[in-house]
Design a protein around this nucleic acid. Sequence first.
DNA 1: AAGTGCGGCAACCGCAAAAGG
DNA 2: ACCTTTTGCGGTTGCCGCACT
Length: 323
Amino acid sequence: MGKSSCYAAASGIKRGPWTPEEDRKLLAYIQLHGHGSWRSLPQKAGLKRCGKSCRLRWRNYLRPDIKRGNFSLHEDQTIIQLHALLGNRWSAIAAHLPRRTDNEVKNYWNTHLKKRLAKIGFDPVTHKPKAAILGSANGDPKNWSNLSHIAQWESARLQAEARFVKESKLRMLESAPAPSLSDEHHQFAPPLVPQCLDILRASAWESLISMSRSSSRSAALTNMNGQGNVSFGDHHHVNDHGINMNAQDYGSNFEAPTSDQQLSSLMGYDDAALMSSVATGSMNINELFGEYCGDECSELLPALHHDTGFEFGGAWTSLEQLM
DNA sequence: AAGTGCGGCAACCGCAAAAGG
DNA sequence: ACCTTTTGCGGTTGCCGCACT
């Protein structure tokens, strides 16, 4: 027996474009009762649609917190840069564009931005100049390596943010009383923006490092002397590339790092010499932390991972490969 | 004016993960 | 632990309107 689909030509199930009347029914029902189970919604709302179709219509079109219309230059930049970092993870990209839906972002990418990138000579998949892909000597592999490096950090950061938002929502639901009309305003409200993640992360790093810094750091730095003198100047924080990390997104007390030095400082990397050893390949990321933290580092990292919910693993591996 | 091609976008499809029993 | 249902996501399709011939 074939797999059933809610869109299959089942009796009486309508498909195709939504009429204003259907929109009105769906909107009225959700405003009054919330969506509840999408499966049972169409019948209750008097719609001859499947629940999946209703959900999609609500999510992509009827929700009051949706912004429609032209994308701003800033939104263009954000999409392009996040796509370079995340690939086709439209929901993650849309999460950084307030009031935009993943479907809208996806469509906009496919119909506008992809072509625009191609037109100016960039591969829309890799975001590298086509010349570089073809092995041209003009492309500096080190620069791309650094970009990838940045991408790994940002990717890990976004994972953590997504987790944070999810957990925050769960906490909200747990603490909320039984569903009522007023709860629907939560559904209408813009997605919760992580306000303290970077602070959590920064403090976690600071804690981790400060625990061991006093005993290990001076020795580490002594050992590092003379090992590599390449500047870390081309290790830019994503902000320097225009990533959408406005300070207000992280709460009024948080100032997003605006330079390599600030980022390094936030993460406990306030010694360019140490980082340049990583950059030159004379030390891998685990060795770096070994030097910083001593043997207890290997125990602290999983604990830190657990406490912050931060997925270091993938970024870690990739960072090592890149360096 | 009619035909054709193309771009934009809403909607559909199918899979995977999460949630619930 | 397993199965079923629900939800979320990304890729794809097809309709509609506009521009061009």
